[in-house]
Amino acid sequence: MYIPPAFRDDDIESIRATIRSARLASLVTATSEGPVATPLPLFLDESEGEHGVLYGHVAKANPHWQLAPIGHALAIFGGPEAYVTPSWYATKQETGKVVPTWNYVAVHAYGPVEFFQEPERLLDAVTRLTNRHEGARAKPWAVSDAPADFIAAQLRGIVGVRIPVVRFEGKRKMSQNRPEADRVGVAQGLSASDNPHDREVAPLIPIPA
């Protein structure tokens, strides 16, 4: 990922927070047939290995897991993002020398990918993934709520994904390269937007308190 110095995010807690908040990731591997990508939810077990281990699963009918990967896999996680109009820049009034851009948060995680089919490992992975996304609900659904034979049959239709992370790349592009007056204008413009995604980005713009 191209990361200018102003936008580099090397803070491991920030990176982990982006991964935790991402509802969907993209798993990308290079193969002899070309690059292959699958959208899927992943969770990071921070207690395993030096950088943590990513877990998820794909459908057994998905050919992705049958194509031998060349080199490390790439897992892509997206965070808050918003379009930035030049109209919000104070510089527009001063010189007119401005163009649109996009602000966003992204994390790339790299590591060797393992695909597994052992029932007990699959059950553990889907249970932990389910608990992560159900935990905040008033009445969380649990894997154990379904009949055991039904769950066993469902597990036969998936393949687990395990990626021990060897390297993270974090990027937080939030107008850090703009003058303070421009950043204030961007934060104000995003805050006033009707789009909830824009309003989520607004407080991430670095401006003086």
Rank of each mutant, 00 (worst) to 15 (best):
G52R: 01
L54D: 04
Y55K: 01
Y55L: 08
Y55S: 02
G56H: 08
H57P: 11
A59Q: 12
K60P: 03
K60H: 06
A61D: 15
N62P: 09
P63K: 11
W65T: 00
Q66C: 15
Q66A: 14
Q66M: 15
Q66Y: 11
I70A: 10
I70Q: 13
G71I: 09
G71N: 01
G71K: 02
H72C: 07
A73Y: 01
L74W: 00
A75W: 03
A75P: 09
I76W: 01
I76A: 08
I76E: 09
G78E: 11
G79K: 00
A82E: 06
A82F: 08
V84K: 03
V84D: 09
T85M: 04
S87W: 05
S87H: 12
W88H: 10
W88C: 13
Y89Q: 10
Y89S: 02
A90I: 02
T91I: 04
T91P: 08
K92W: 00
Q93L: 10
Q93I: 05
E94V: 10
E94K: 13
E94W: 12
T95I: 09
K97T: 08
V98N: 02
V99H: 14
P100W: 07
P100C: 07
P100Q: 03
P100Y: 14
T101F: 05
T101V: 07
N103S: 10
Y104W: 09
V105S: 05
V105Q: 07
A106I: 09
H108G: 05
H108L: 12
H108W: 05
H108Y: 05
A109D: 01
Y110V: 00
P112Y: 04
V113C: 04
E114P: 08
F115P: 10
F116K: 01
E118I: 07
E120F: 02
E120A: 13
L123E: 07
L123V: 07
D124R: 14
A125G: 13
